[in-house]
Design a protein around this nucleic acid. Structure first.
Length: 805
RNA sequence: GCCGCGGUGGCGGAAUUGGUAGACGCGCAGGACUUAAAAUCCUGUAUGGGUAAUACCAUGUGAGGGUUCGAUUCCCUCCCGCGGCACCA
């Protein structure tokens, strides 16, 4: 039996920390360097925190404690992302009001977070569904609105028939709703957008950020920049071939293939479709457009789907050679990208090739392979090459031709260099109840009028609302909410009834934390510039193209509005790995979630959090399996007994060497977020020190080393060592280089690269000496005698390799 | 299809400016303590030979090839798993 009672100690210290206000950060401290240590705040959708949260939160807290011991003024806030679909769907399912279920879930989660014993500064807790918070989310909306970055527009949008609301592009995963997996359809609706596209180029700049390569790549792909040219084609009369005065602009990255354009294709939603279609083709075209509208994205973009399209009867003139080509409509061209129209070059584009084959359209080859190989006839040749059949441009390589042809078109104003992005504007309105109301009023006389700042918040009515989704915002049925006065002229007017996407709430919460008590402003400029950007941000990689992109956009916008001096929210970002259960993602619906509570009850928070960290690298995650948790429990007992038990040190030199090696190893591993190897180093030290015994001063160092990883245990032992203050006010130990340098090393002797023997030697042994000594070893002699020595290799302090032939 | 990451004992994993593969932990086996069990402690534990036991030998980091005195680490081809994107012209 160990002497340590984890449950008692943990309860005792959680209480004491609270009494001492140990983790209440002095945000105005000017003596110490600030450190903003942030973890993505949870949404109270289920009823409790699961293992995944702990896997995320506990190491983040260990990191914060480590930085604190290094002398930083660490700020580790916590709050709840309590608005939004997850919380609302949970409430509907359980037949409770979202406000009630949210509160209940938050209360329970706080209990769990308390049991974890993290150093959260609860004095600045925030909850996005509280009017004190969403008042400022609405303020944020108004700032964007005033700077023309928020606008309402009718357009085809993603519609989830299950959740009965529109969704942002980012919330559609493989054509399905991110939340409920229902197939997403398109609807023509008037909706609110944030103009994130304006920031596409700046969002590609990661130069001052310490972010995972992978996340940068994901955002880059999502933004999807490509440079090419726009080309203007004149629409010509089908019979006379004379220009009609109308033009169609296409976007291409392959202007070098312009001579190979044998037809043009418009997206069914292209606004000129109706205009250019000739009477004899109207019926066909209308049918096709109607059908395309009904198709879901998932069907329209299914891989290997056969291409379809119809002729419009219209013709356009190729500006480079005057060739007249037909205009088609096909749904493989997307209205939302580029200009919604493409020039089709079947010889050099796979999609165009497939389409041309099906509809027997001409295929003209204009590029030949640069390496002289034959042009294929049964497929498109899509690589760059040398131009052929392109009049004066023949013989030019693709890259040159792109410049030359663009130049030629520029003269006649028929083409220019353009950049396109896949990123679309952020759709932020939702036809749901549980969100921040959009602060806009519609007046018959004044039109769209923003709610004045002093009238915020536009309070979400909590009573008398049937919040079940029905395709229109539930707020539309609340008369005393809808009917109001126009802020501009005072006449009767109606409120906007849609609410904001919950990602708007979370796109700025990190700015609010230090300002949580500010009732005058969303944030104070000086305080915010002092504390931000966030020094360390930890959360899941699934937010790469949503929250993390939105937060960067909002920060840049607020910077441009002169509210803050920085334009990136998170200086360093780390993603924790995913914890699975039997290989599957843990989820409520699958019923395979694992609760941390029983483990904490049985082994204590320290053991549980250390076990999560010991499982493997933090960024890897892994499959949950509790079989090894006993090992950590044993280690904690051993460590406690080692420090608690009095015994005279037996081997001072070995102890000191081991101790200082451990300081070095743990420090380096903490820096690299390699908690698993930091813990194993502490295990090795404990095993070793149990043999050598340990003195008082070394005990203090050992306790400090384990403190970030096992805070309660360390605090308890710190007290038994008669240290008055908290161990978290103590300084992180440093090691002595001198103590860890060995004066002798083991030199490995290899023959032909295979280890055959070893010998002890001074660390600075020279080659001649080492080779000489190696050759004297009997076993080595046997190998040498079998042939002749052709080479001797010496790696200082490590290896002698004798090559025998 | 494209982009990115990974594949090491029975299991989780260590070790890479190329230098003793398997640290640490789990599990397992044997032993001590105990009337017995649990707990604890000690010893062993990549695989295959080999030995009374050491010694020793061979093989071994998804597969195959290459570079090198030497490859888990670098290069090429392929297989498998995971994550992201997906008709973006």
């Amino acid at each position: 039996m160990s002497l340590y009672n984890a449950r008692e100690a943990e309860e005792k210290w959680q209480k004491k920390w609270k009494e001492m206000s140990l983790y209440t950060t002095d945000l105005n401290d000017k003596d110490r360097k600030k450190y903003y240590n942030l973890v993505m705040f949870p949404y109270p959708s289920g009823d409790k925190l699961h293992i995944g949260h702990w896997y995320n939160f506990a190491p983040s807290d260990s990191w914060g404690r480590y930085k604190r011991m290094q002398g930083y003024n660490v700020y580790e806030p916590m709050g709840f992302d309590s608005f939004g679909l997850p919380a609302e769907n949970y409430a509907i399912k359980h037949g409770v009001h979202p406000q009630k279920s949210t509160k209940k879930n938050i209360d329970y989660m706080k209990k769990q977070l308390n049991a974890m014993g993290a150093m959260y500064d609860w004095s600045t807790e925030i909850s996005t569904s509280h009017p004190d918070y969403y008042k400022w989310t609405q303020w944020l909306f108004l700032q964007l609105y005033n700077h023309k970055l928020a606008y309402k527009k009718k357009s085809p949008v993603n519609w989830c028939p299950q959740c009965q609301t529109v969704l942002a592009n980012e919330q559609v995963v493989e054509g399905q709703c991110e939340r409920c997996d229902a197939e997403v359809t398109k609807k023509d609706l008037s909706q609110w957008f944030f103009n994130i596209r304006d920031y596409a180029e700046r969002l590609l700049d990661f130069s001052d950020l310490d972010w995972p390569e992978k996340t940068q790549l994901m955002q880059e792909h999502w933004i999807g920049k490509s440079t090419g040219s726009t080309i203007v084609f004149d629409v010509v009369d089908p019979s006379t071939k004379k220009p009609t005065g109308k033009t169609i602009t296409v976007f291409t990255t392959r202007i070098d293939t312009l001579f190979g354009a044998t037809y043009m294709v418009l997206a069914p939603e292209h606004k000129l479709v109706d205009d250019i279609t000739t009477d004899s083709h109207k019926e066909n075209v209308n049918d096709y457009v109607e059908k395309a509208k009904k198709e879901t994205d998932i069907n329209r973009s299914a891989e290997g789907r056969e291409k379809t399209g119809v002729e419009t009867g219209a013709y356009v003139k190729n500006p480079i050679n005057g060739k007249i080509i037909p205009v088609w409509i096909a749904d493989y061209v997307l209205a939302s990208y580029g200009t919604g129209a493409v020039m089709a070059v079947p010889a050099h584009d796979e999609r165009d090739f497939a389409f041309a084959q099906k509809y027997k359209l001409p295929i003209t080859q204009v590029i030949k392979p640069a390496d002289g190989s034959e042009l294929p006839l049964d497929e498109a040749f899509t690589d760059d090459g040398i131009l052929i059949n392109s009049e004066t441009f023949d013989g030019l390589p693709s890259s040159e031709a792109r410049k030359a042809i663009t130049k030629a078109l520029e003269k006649g104003k028929k083409g220019e260099l353009t950049t396109q992005y896949k990123l679309r504007d952020w759709l932020i309105s939702r036809q749901r109840f549980w969100g921040a109301p959009i602060p806009i009023v519609y007046c018959n006389d004044c039109g769209e009028v923003p709610v004045p700042e002093e009238d915020l918040p536009v309070v979400l009515p909590l009573e008398g609302v049937d919040f079940n989704p029905k395709g229109e915002s539930p707020l539309a049925t609340v008369d005393n909410f809808v009917h109001t006065k126009c802020p501009s002229c005072g006449k009767p007017a109606q409120r906007e009834v849609d609410t904001m996407d919950t990602f708007v709430c979370s796109s700025w919460y990190f700015l609010r934390y230090p300002n949580a008590h500010n009732t005058e402003k969303a944030f104070d400029k000086h305080l915010t510039d002092t504390w931000l950007p966030v020094d360390m941000y930890i959360g899941g990689p699934e937010h790469a193209c949503m929250h993390l992109l939105y937060a960067r956009f909002i920060t840049k916008a607020l910077h441009d509005f002169n509210f803050i001096d920085f334009d990136e929210p998170f200086k360093k970002l780390v993603h924790q790995g995913l914890i699975t259960k039997d290989g599957a993602k843990m989820s409520k619906s699958k019923g395979n979630t694992v609760s941390p509570d029983e483990f904490v009850e049985q082994y204590g928070s320290d053991v549980f959090r250390m076990y999560l960290m010991f499982m493997g690298p933090f960024t890897d995650g892994g499959d949950w399996n509790d079989s090894g948790i006993k090992g950590i429990a044993r280690f904690v007992d051993k460590f406690y007994d080692l420090i608690y038990t009095k015994a005279d040190v037996q081997d001072e030199e070995t102890l000191q060497k081991m101790l200082h090696k451990t300081i070095k190893k743990v420090t380096e591993d903490m820096e690299k977020f390699q908690f698993n190897t930091a813990i194993s180093a502490l295990m090795e030290f404990t095993n070793s020190a149990s043999k050598t015994r340990i003195d008082y001063e070394s005990k203090k160092i050992a306790v400090k080393l384990i403190a970030p990883l096992a805070p309660h245990l360390a605090e308890e032992l710190w007290e038994t060592l008669n240290q008055g203050d908290s161990v978290f006010n103590a300084k992180w130990p440093t090691y002595s280089e001198e103590l860890i340098t060995e004066d002798t090393v083991q030199i490995v002797v290899q023959v032909n690269g295979k280890v055959r023997a070893t010998f002890e030697a001074p660390i600075d042994i020279q080659k001649d000496d080492a080779v000489h000594r190696a050759k004297k070893i009997k076993k080595i002699q046997k190998y040498i005698e079998k042939g002749t020595v052709v080479k001797e290799i010496f790696v200082p302090g490590k290896i002698v390799n004798i090559v025998v032939k």
